[in-house]
Write a protein that binds this DNA or RNA. Structure first.
Lengths: 341, 341
DNA sequence: CTGTTAGCGCATTCAC
DNA sequence: GTGAATGCGCTAACAG
């Protein structure tokens, strides 16, 4: 099929040259057909297509990337895959990618900035069309890579900071503040906080700080709190609420670092016969389906993970070059009244 | 930096040639250092490393792939990212990948076999080191691609069928059967079934069939059922259980297509004051954290998603070539007694 | 509308 | 332990 090729090295897959030969055109013409590039006469297009079909030709992207100095890969760097929130983001990203020639390569940092930097660097090796990261805070090295490359950069979830290229998200500090206001307006005064590892999770920390600010602005002290350096989970929420209530029996409302944790808290209340809202208000963050499916819908903040992922991809794919102006899109959030606060 | 290069086309990123020049070695020597290939004198190694450092050299994987006819990409094709189960699989895959030079490219089929075939084909364009798919059933085209390529193939979650290269999973039919046995042994006789779209989800269908077989073997009719062509969700579980109980008030146990649905069923019981197990047994599948965190731990089947993902990657990376024998690894499952059945 | 020329950046092979 | 020659498969740029 391609006699010049080193038969020991390669599998005998047809190349563009084979297609071109069979269709009686030059390689570049075949290449244009493969990539849908104008102008091509309909007749030759069909001839090439038929040759592709006959040979079962599959383009070699490595060669294409090398020749054109770019790829159709989109690198996505996420803090975690255990947290369903990022699975939803990824889902949004995929929905925007489907039907395009672009494909997502995934990396997971486990909330470690140094790991993020390493992963970004290794993704650069593929000359991606875009890199999507979570948050606006990166190591200097990572920021350096992201700033100077010839690819688009998307920063997700957060807008409290300066974007490199495009940022899509919401203000977590403001959401935390509004959560506090929500509770204060409803008369709750003795607030508690149950959280997971805030060192690692910037956005959870920003919400916590916003909450404290709301209390401060009403002349109240920071919430009684119980945190633990564990990943977020329902079980953690349940167990930490138990601890918190033992230590601070007089609380009338508890804010959780997110809905996973809050659902755990709800289960704890069920077990102990504590009536949510009436005896103890529960407040989450995310607006997960599970929280809204509880017998009492969880009071929470609805963030838009799927939309954020989808939107950022659409923005990034709109142009290959970075636009002159950095763009920050606030997709906002919504306080969900629910039945638990 | 590299004067021969077409400055209009390329960003001015250093290449291996630049590194070699600066370190006063040939390209191939520099290449050996980059790839940690023996033999290299320690002194030259350090010189090259320092040049890499100085220039901020980042290898071009497209060029490497092209020259070596292979890549360090692992393609992962999943039915869905909305279902947390696949996020967990992906998590397992990533945990096995971390620390290796391999990276995962993700595709999502939405449970559509034709989509799976298209995605597999497009992943072939990257000459991946391995392709991981879910299940053993594919379109003839997809199976053709997978069978004949020069890459490893992993099939996840299912072992009821013939593997192409390596399969890691469990028998869903057997799990369904055992679920039925569990309920029958505990005296339940009037069984119902609440499920999501079984046309799309082979494994859920296999479990359903296993359940029917268990009933049949005990001389009982198939379960009263309520299915709906929706993706799996807590809300769906709750609403479908409501419908099922309206139509079949006399049921004493309900099997759900998975834990998401079963948790919804549990919530429904809470709302209506139905006592799980005592008045109505609830049985799920997966062993999700949320089910075990309920005030009454859900009776279910624990499958090992994380482990499956991790294990299949380890098996696939063990050798670049497909072994002579196809391998099927049964990672089994565990009936979780729980408190709801 | 189509083809020619000339690499893209790296790894293989084999010689030294 | 190191290097020279060669080509992987494809596409940009222009000419025709």
């Amino acid at each position: 099929m391609n006699e010049k090729r080193n038969a020991f090295l390669r599998a005998d897959t047809p190349t563009l040259a084979d297609v071109a030969r069979l269709a009686n055109v030059s390689e570049i013409t075949a290449s244009r057909v493969v990539r849908n590039r104008q102008p091509i006469a309909e007749a030759t297009r069909l001839r090439v297509l038929s040759a592709i079909q006959q040979l079962g030709y599959i383009p070699n992207r490595a060669a294409g990337s090398l020749a054109s100095a770019g790829s159709t890969l989109i690198s996505v760097v996420l803090p975690s895959l255990s947290n369903i929130v990022f699975a939803e983001v990824l889902n949004g990203i995929h929905s925007a990618l489907s039907g395009t020639p672009f494909q997502a390569v995934i990396g997971v940092t486990d909330y470690d900035r140094e790991a993020e930097a390493r992963i970004v660097r290794s993704f650069l090796e593929w000359q991606p069309a875009a890199i999507i990261v979570v948050g606006l805070h990166h190591t200097p090295a990572a920021r350096g890579y992201l700033e100077k490359g010839r690819f688009r950069v998307g920063e997700l979830m957060d807008i409290d900071g300066e974007a490199i290229d495009v940022a899509v998200g919401m203000s977590h500090r403001q959401a935390g503040y509004d959560s506090g206001r929500h509770l204060l307006q409803r008369g709750y005064r003795r607030l508690g906080y149950v959280g997971h590892d805030l060192e690692a999770d910037d956005r959870a920390r920003a919400r916590y700080e916003g909450l404290c600010a709301a209390l401060r602005d009403s002349g109240l002290p920071p919430p009684a709190e119980r945190r633990f350096d564990v990943p977020t989970s329902t079980t953690a929420g349940r167990d930490l609420l138990a601890l918190l209530l033992t230590e601070h029996p007089g609380l009338d409302a508890v804010v959780f670092s997110n809905d996973d944790m809050a659902v755990g808290g709800f289960f704890y209340c069920l077990e102990k016969g504590i009536r949510p809202k009436e005896q103890l208000a529960l407040f989450g963050f995310s607006g997960l389906e599970i929280g809204q499916a509880l017998p009492m819908p969880l009071s929470t903040v609805r963030s838009q993970r799927f939309l954020a992922g989808k939107l950022i991809v659409e923005k990034l794919l709109a142009s290959r070059e970075r636009p002159a102006e950095k763009v920050t899109i606030d997709i906002g959030y919504e306080i969900v009244e629910g039945a638990t606060a």
